[in-house]
Amino acid sequence: MNIFRLSGDLLHLASIFILIARLHQTKSCAGISLKTQYLYLLVFATRYLDLFLGFVSVYNTLMKIFFLASSGYIVYLMYSPLKASYDKSLDSFRVEYIIAFAAVVALAFPHKYSVVEVLWSFSIYLESLAIIPQLFQMTRTGEADNITSHYVFALGGYRALYMLNWFYRYYTEDNYVDYISWIAGIVQTALYGDFFYIYITRVLKGKSFKLP
């Protein structure tokens, strides 16, 4: 554990609390992509299967359980109590392409050919692309309420902090490199490029998130 990874994890945790608070406060899921939330549930379900296979630390186990439970809870909220506020026509990105792409890359370049390793690679690649339906919806409508933009910022910032963590690990742990995490992490952070720019130039200056 190092300060970059811990900060990244805490920012990831914060992003989920922000989203749940947003759903509870407004009693609406308008502006939130159900497809992105469904993809995160799939990401955690395929990656954290290893909960049953090995033990890393109490911290690691508790965080995994939290991510699984919270993503399930968010999908439940959007499917059931908040369903009336969900506008399917705005959440129109074809998510099949993302799942198929992540599956092909995971099958082509896993660390090892085993069910658990291929699913792990799939979850890493899928996570890197899972924000696309959310960003697509924000691009389509051209705006987002502030708390939604804070949510997306925290979610994007978390993986950027992980990149600092991988640099740190490279130097402190005998050139430790996980190339799958690196490639997916770079793609994931890069996808947020335009978003970060608008967030910093508008939302942090007290204006609302609006595309020019």
Binding site: V56, N60, W120, V177
Partner: peptide, 10 residues
């Protein structure tokens, strides 16, 4: 270079 033996990150 060291290869990741296990996935210890989240």
């Amino acid at each position: 270079s060291a290869q990741p033996a296990e996935h210890d990150e989240l």
